[in-house]
Simulated assay, not measured.
Amino acid sequence: MAVLRAARLVIVWLFATFSLVMAPTALAAEKSEDDPGYWLERLEPALTRTSYMGVFVYARGDQVSSMQVAHRYRNGMVEERLVMQDGQIGEIVRRGMDVVCVLPRHGRMELNAAIPSGPFAEAFTNQLVPVDRWYQPEIIGDDRIAGHDVVRLALNARDSLRYSHQLWLERSTGLPLKGKVLSDSGETLEYFHFTSLTISDSLPDEEFMVQSEGREVSRTLAPQSSATPDQSMEGWTLGWRPDGFQPAAAPRSGSGKAVAFSDGLASFSVFVDTATGVGMPSGTSRIGATTVYMRKLEKGDEGFLVTVVGEIPLETALKVAESVEIEDSAVLGAVLP
């Protein structure tokens, strides 16, 4: 089970760069390094276009995983390879939209069923989200991470509907080398931290080749859909979402429909599916910064399960879930519970 959890964290990293959109980097050149906006505008190009390899640790609650990553941008395409460092070996290799996952002795793993969570997962939408409208950015000092000089940037939530963040950005590239998600009381809910890192434009080709033996699962990821949330909410509606959360690429889950939203740093998804048995779960759980809230919903004699999952406080997830209404159970393919 630990290996499978780690594998899902690896997939999270892939979704982080898969869902990015190019921001206008020319604006960064017009600002001073003392301006937090300078670093915010460098963040997306740094994540996509910086070539690097290293090892990072990712912690959510009591789950801690370490992973080796190699990433490069060549000929207009992102290439990436991630290898789990704990437990049995497993790896994921990505070239553009093509992804190969190898998990020895664990059989098939559905890449399109991964729920986005973790640092920067699904955080960038098909719109340019004004992050500083929902977070107060502040440079809070300098530091060193994995032998690299970094700028420490705080992004303090302007309301209680989202968490605050801190980022440690490598000075020459803007690449995040460490990140924390913080509660309103300042508690660290989850973090990632590079322990070793090499930034280079001449990484060897073999670093981006599958090297593990085992069953391979291949997928070609679809480009982010331009569909609106209303088009995705077939048979149901969402009456409320926090200000600033815009439509983002949504994962798929079983036979149900999912709609995802992001404010530029955090994201959450709403799943609506048929409740097929009396033992369907409901209630709340939290791992690190990721909240999962499940609510049973009935319309006539038909039962449904609403799930909200994402890097948002419990109160926000609960309010989102309570705003879901079933309009047409036939469209959802509801069955008697």
Results as ranks from 00 to 15, higher is better:
50 T>N: 01
227 A>T: 08
10 V>K: 00
188 T>W: 02
323 S>E: 08
284 T>S: 14
153 L>Q: 06
284 T>H: 15
104 P>W: 05
263 D>Q: 06
222 A>R: 15
245 F>V: 08
182 L>T: 07
217 V>I: 11
301 D>P: 03
276 T>R: 14
247 P>F: 03
256 G>Q: 05
187 E>N: 12
309 V>D: 02
151 V>G: 00
310 G>S: 13
92 I>C: 10
170 E>Q: 11
292 V>D: 09
187 E>H: 13
213 E>H: 01
225 S>A: 14
195 T>L: 09
53 M>V: 01
59 A>K: 15
278 V>D: 09
97 M>Y: 14
210 V>C: 05
35 D>V: 00
19 S>D: 15
100 V>A: 12
45 P>K: 02
56 F>C: 02
263 D>C: 13
29 A>N: 07
117 S>E: 14
187 E>V: 09
336 L>K: 13
191 Y>A: 13
162 R>Y: 10
171 R>S: 08
52 Y>Q: 00
269 S>R: 04
274 T>W: 02
289 A>Q: 03
113 A>P: 00
265 L>R: 07
147 G>L: 01
289 A>G: 15
171 R>A: 10
200 S>C: 00
24 P>F: 07
29 A>W: 02
205 D>R: 10
251 P>D: 06
125 T>G: 10
166 Q>V: 13
88 Q>N: 04
151 V>E: 04
330 A>W: 02
220 T>E: 15
206 E>S: 09
121 A>D: 13
323 S>Y: 12
67 M>R: 03
138 E>N: 01
146 A>E: 07
38 Y>C: 00
286 R>G: 06
20 L>F: 01
199 I>P: 01
137 P>A: 09
272 V>S: 06
250 A>M: 12
273 D>R: 12
170 E>R: 03
248 A>Y: 04
261 F>S: 09
63 Q>D: 13
58 Y>V: 07
200 S>V: 01
107 G>A: 07
23 A>Q: 14
255 S>C: 02
121 A>K: 01
96 G>Q: 08
230 D>L: 13
298 E>N: 12
112 N>L: 15
115 I>L: 14
99 V>E: 06
160 S>L: 13
149 D>H: 07
108 R>I: 02
110 E>W: 07
199 I>F: 04
75 N>Y: 06
246 Q>F: 15
106 H>W: 08
207 E>D: 03
57 V>F: 01
291 T>L: 03
143 D>E: 09
125 T>H: 10
178 K>G: 04
216 E>M: 15
254 G>H: 12
57 V>D: 12
75 N>K: 10
176 P>L: 08
61 G>W: 10
32 S>M: 04
2 A>T: 07
126 N>K: 13
73 Y>Q: 05
81 R>F: 03
207 E>T: 05
144 R>L: 01
188 T>E: 14
34 D>H: 05
283 G>W: 10
19 S>K: 06
283 G>M: 04
46 A>F: 01
295 R>N: 06
102 V>D: 03
257 K>A: 15
124 F>A: 12
222 A>E: 15
256 G>R: 07
327 E>C: 01
249 A>P: 00
302 E>C: 09
223 P>F: 13
234 E>S: 10
54 G>A: 05
229 P>W: 10
305 L>N: 11
126 N>A: 14
294 M>R: 15
42 R>T: 00
94 R>G: 01
190 E>F: 08
80 E>F: 02
13 W>I: 10
128 L>Q: 11
240 W>L: 11
265 L>H: 07
201 D>P: 02
202 S>L: 00
188 T>F: 07
269 S>H: 08
